[in-house]
């Protein structure tokens, strides 16, 4: 990607839907939109790190929304990102019991309202718990499942990155790791309920 390259909203959405050029597009989103979002968060009581964390979660939410075909393009990408980020931060403030800041943020989000915006909030909490579940798995299960289900690598390709003797060992290990993860979810019924609600709403 050229440092001065410019993407239209349509190009951004199209690029995030497929893997080619994904890194360049996410980097472009960071270059274009992160400073404004981080500034909004710091203006509303957050630290620089809070702002950067919120923006990372915002970008992840946006990509997932696009990949599910739920980004309708009624608002610009910038507006969409800003609204998600503000709502994530508002929810974080709620958790931190700082209602004064919350009201201020709420006032500034009136320019654009998405009827589904509350979904991002409940989804975010569910996803945070998802990540904690994965962390509980530890290495190498975490890596094996990511290589297969996120990187979409074949068993042969995975073998190059793992300390196992052959593809069958990797296959067995992957199977056991998935079972282990499902066991963790079963031990956390609260997450199950949130997931079921989310599945029904999406």
């Amino acid at each position: 990607m050229n440092a001065e390259a410019h993407y239209t909203d349509e190009e951004l959405v199209a690029g995030l839907s497929e893997n080619g050029g994904f890194n360049d597009i996410v980097l472009y989103i960071y270059k274009q939109f992160s400073s404004a979002v981080v500034a909004t968060i710091t203006y509303n009581g957050g630290s620089q790190e809070d702002g950067e964390d919120v923006f990372q979660e915002t970008v992840v939410s946006f990509i997932e929304t696009v990949r599910r075909g739920k980004f309708r393009g009624e608002a610009s990408v910038k507006t969409f990102l800003t609204v998600i980020a503000r709502n994530i931060w508002m929810n974080e403030l709620r958790k931190r019991q700082r209602s004064g800041y919350r009201e201020k943020v709420y006032e500034s989000t009136r320019d654009y309202r998405d009827p589904d915006i509350s979904n991002y909030i409940s989804e975010r909490e569910t996803k945070q718990e998802f990540r904690r579940m994965l962390e509980k798995l530890g290495e190498p299960c975490n890596k094996i499942l990511l290589l297969f289900y996120y990187e979409n690598l074949s068993m042969k390709e995975m073998l190059d990155q793992l300390p196992y003797e052959n593809e069958q060992v990797v296959r067995n290990k992957k199977y056991k790791c998935l079972q282990q993860l499902i066991g963790i979810f079963k031990d956390n019924p609260g997450i199950s309920e949130k997931f079921i609600k989310k599945s029904k709403s999406s």
Binding site: N23, V26, L27, Y30, E52, F55, Q56, E57, V59, V60, I63, E64, K127, F130, R131, M133, L134, N142, L145, L146, Y149, Y150, E151, L178, L181, I182, F185, K186, I191, S192, F195, I196, S199
Partner: peptide
């Protein structure tokens, strides 16, 4: 449903880490 949920968690976690690396 359990399997789908687990795979969704894996994909989300992968994407979160991927965006974190770009960050």
């Amino acid at each position: 449903s359990n399997i789908q949920r687990s795979v969704e968690a894996i994909r989300h976690s992968g994407l979160y880490g991927h965006v974190g690396a770009i960050r």
